[in-house]
Lab assay of single mutants.
Amino acid sequence: MRVFPVYAPKLIVKHARIFLTGVIWVKDLGRLEFEKGRFLLPRKSLPKVKQAILELNELIEAQN
């Protein structure tokens, strides 16, 4: 598990694309899981977490 002390979308996306499957922890967002290079949306999450995951997945799609 990698810990990101700040929310840096480009760096987080780079990590997810390299490792494809895993878990990261982002300060103020908490634990985020990714599989096959995409972030998974938890069943229950705060609106800011949901927005961050959608933003990260959009960045991943834009890079493909």
Rank of each mutant, 00 (worst) to 15 (best):
G22P: 02
A52M: 06
F4R: 00
I24T: 02
E58D: 09
D28L: 06
L32M: 13
Q51S: 11
K14D: 14
R43D: 08
P5I: 10
I53F: 03
H15W: 05
E55D: 07
P9F: 03
I60T: 06
E55V: 07
E33P: 07
H15L: 04
L46A: 14
K50E: 06
E61S: 11
L20G: 13
A62Q: 11
H15D: 03
K10D: 12
V3Q: 08
P42H: 07
L40C: 06
H15Y: 06
R2M: 15
G30V: 01
P47C: 06
R38A: 07
I18H: 15
L32D: 01
L40A: 05
L40G: 04
R31S: 04
R38F: 14
A8N: 09
Q51A: 14
L20Y: 10
I60S: 05
K10T: 14
K48A: 07
S45G: 10
L32Q: 00
L56R: 01
L41W: 09
P5F: 14
R31I: 12
V13A: 13
I24D: 01
E58H: 12
K10A: 14
K44G: 09
A62Y: 12
P42D: 07
G37T: 05
E55G: 06
K36R: 09
F19A: 15
L29K: 03
I53N: 00
V13Y: 03
I24V: 08
F34M: 06
F34C: 03
L32F: 14
L59N: 04
V23A: 05
R43E: 11
L41C: 06
L20F: 06
F39Q: 00
L29N: 00
L40W: 04
R2K: 15
E35S: 08
I18S: 12
A62L: 11
K36N: 13
P5M: 14
K44Y: 10
L59A: 05
F4N: 01
K10C: 10
L29G: 00
M1W: 01
L54K: 13
W25P: 00
L29Y: 07
L41N: 09
I18F: 11
L11P: 09
R2H: 15
K50S: 08
I53W: 03
G22A: 03
P42T: 05
I18D: 15
